[in-house]
């Protein structure tokens, strides 16, 4: 039975009804990222403190003197969300131990976009994860610097056209493979790493709930469609997220204590990536050879992932 088709039946039992990111924020219509943040907040509940990086989610939610946040929230700068979150965690820990605040479990969450996580925020995140703070970090990856105007990041996929790696007469756009951030987090030996996408809301919520229960650092890489930056219709934000997963461009999986597990949402047989590419303006310039080249890499990477799921069981 498809849970999404029976959403009204299941939702009240599966999703926290309380909105912790209120409506009235200034995100673009069809923003997959703000949907991701909203679902994350629902999964986390009220006993949460969020440290956010500079970026779309920060500017759309905190325009002084208004705020969309119904949970404690702090923003300091672009590259330091993980460092700020680690300080919040350390501060709450000390105050709780010393009896200065109530003895209550509070989950500290750092969040940033792909630039704030994979590029400029990478050092602070690596440090925070290595130090073992009891915190979750969520990367909301929309595959470019959307807030500043669709410039390429290390999260931009091969072949996508951006304002700093544009397609041109002698260029196919992005000429590098997307950085595999989830794998970098796995290499930090943190207890829980997952990939997610708000197009699969229950899967995402379940993963956030799981991360919340981890005593120690955890990381979720959340793939979020950006109609503005991807040059696609805003009513495709959900369907494109599903296609990214179903083509294997962005597979959903979890890594718990080093053990890989493919999420139930992954299809038995992947769709060709051209199904995912066709409605996106950022891929419009790609020819058949280029698409085949990218398809080859997607197949290879997916194969490697399936191998990790199988082979690493021996090390459980």
């Amino acid at each position: 039975m498809n849970i999404v088709e029976n959403f009204d039946l299941f939702a009240p039992r599966l999703i926290n009804k309380k909105e912790l990111l209120s409506s009235g924020h200034r995100a673009c219509s069809g923003c997959g990222e703000v949907l991701g943040v909203r679902l994350m907040c629902k999964a986390l509940g009220e006993d949460t403190v969020i440290a956010s990086a500079t970026g779309c989610m920060e500017i759309v939610s905190s325009m002084y003197p208004t705020t969309a946040w119904e949970v404690p929230w702090i923003h300091v700068a672009f590259e330091n969300a993980a460092a700020v979150a680690s300080g919040v965690e350390a501060g709450l820990k000390a105050l709780r131990r010393k009896g200065k605040i109530a003895d209550r479990d509070i989950k500290v969450v750092g969040m940033a976009g792909d630039g704030g996580t994979m590029d400029i925020g990478m050092q602070a995140l690596s440090g925070a994860m290595e130090r073992g703070h009891n915190m979750l970090f969520v990367c909301f990856d929309n595959e470019a610097y959307m807030n500043t105007g669709i410039q390429r990041s290390s999260g931009t996929p091969m072949g996508a056209s951006t304002t700093t790696a544009p397609a041109g007469k002698v260029s196919m756009g992005q000429k590098t493979w997307k950085k595999n951030m989830a794998e970098i987090m796995v290499a930090h030996n943190v207890p829980y790493v997952a990939t997610a996408c708000p197009s699969f809301p229950l899967d995402f919520i379940r993963k956030v709930e799981k991360a919340k229960k981890v005593k120690g650092p955890s990381y979720i890489h959340c793939f979020t469609v950006c109609p503005t930056g991807w040059r696609c219709p805003s009513d495709q934000a959900i369907s494109l997220g599903r296609l990214a997963v179903e083509t294997g461009i962005f597979p959903l999986y979890e890594v718990e204590n080093g053990q890989y597990k493919l999420s139930a949402e992954m299809p038995k047989k992947l769709q060709p990536i051209k199904n995912y590419f066709k409605s996106q303006g950022r891929y419009r310039h790609l020819g058949e050879d280029e698409i085949n080249m990218i398809q080859g890499k997607v197949d290879k990477e997916y194969g490697k992932l399936l191998n990790k799921v199988e082979c690493l069981k021996a090390w459980d």
Binding site: V84, S86, G127
Partner: peptide
């Protein structure tokens, strides 16, 4: 009785104490 956070840079040192100060520490 304090948390001593061995940050990976001074940028993170000042960022982390801002976060902690935000909690009232």
């Amino acid at each position: 009785d304090a948390e001593f956070v061995t940050v990976e840079s001074e940028h993170s040192a000042i960022s982390a104490i801002i976060g902690a100060s935000g909690t009232g520490a």
